[in-house]
Simulated assay, not measured.
Amino acid sequence: MKKVIMICVLGAMSLFADPATIIKTKCASCHGANMEKVALGKSAVVNKMSASEIEEALKGYKAKTLNKHGLGGTMWGQAGALSDADIAEIAKYITTNLNK
């Protein structure tokens, strides 16, 4: 019973992941704290993209159908665990809170 409760708690935590925390832990090392960097010298600057462009890219990486700039292998791992709600929140957070 304790295992089931713990799994439910951990699952619920991932459903309500804070976009700032996701960006800090999954994105900032390559894209910068404000998503201002050209990751690995190849990517677009994310904070210059629209929310719909960010969502489309993250969903493509999550589905492993996008390999833009040859960064698919890296991004597939980063986006793979994100829910569609996480992706929407990340896109909204970047476009409303980070420097452009």
Rank of each mutant, 00 (worst) to 15 (best):
L58K: 02
E53Y: 14
M1N: 11
I5W: 03
S52I: 12
V46R: 01
G80V: 12
G70F: 04
V46M: 01
I22S: 00
L15D: 07
L82M: 14
W76C: 09
I90K: 00
D18S: 12
H31S: 02
K37D: 02
M13S: 12
N67Q: 12
S50K: 08
K64G: 03
V46A: 09
T96K: 09
I22A: 13
K2C: 05
L40P: 03
S29A: 14
Q78Y: 09
K42R: 15
G70K: 10
K64A: 10
A20S: 15
V38C: 08
A12K: 02
D18Q: 10
A44C: 14
I22Y: 07
E36W: 03
T95G: 10
K3P: 02
M13E: 08
A17V: 08
C27V: 01
A81M: 09
A44N: 09
A20R: 08
E89M: 11
D86K: 03
G32I: 06
S50I: 10
G41P: 05
T65L: 04
T25N: 12
I87L: 08
N34D: 09
E53K: 15
A79N: 06
M6L: 15
K59D: 05
G11C: 11
K42F: 08
T74G: 07
K48C: 03
L10P: 01
A44S: 11
A39Q: 02
V38Q: 07
P19K: 02
S83V: 11
N97V: 02
V38K: 08
S83K: 01
L58H: 02
N34L: 04
K64Q: 14
M75Q: 01
G80R: 11
L82E: 00
K37Y: 11
G72S: 11
T21S: 08
T96R: 07
K59A: 04
D18A: 04
N47K: 04
N34E: 15
D84H: 02
I22T: 12
D18H: 06
K37S: 07
N47F: 04
K42H: 05
L58S: 00
A12N: 12
A20K: 13
L40Q: 13
K42D: 11
N99P: 05
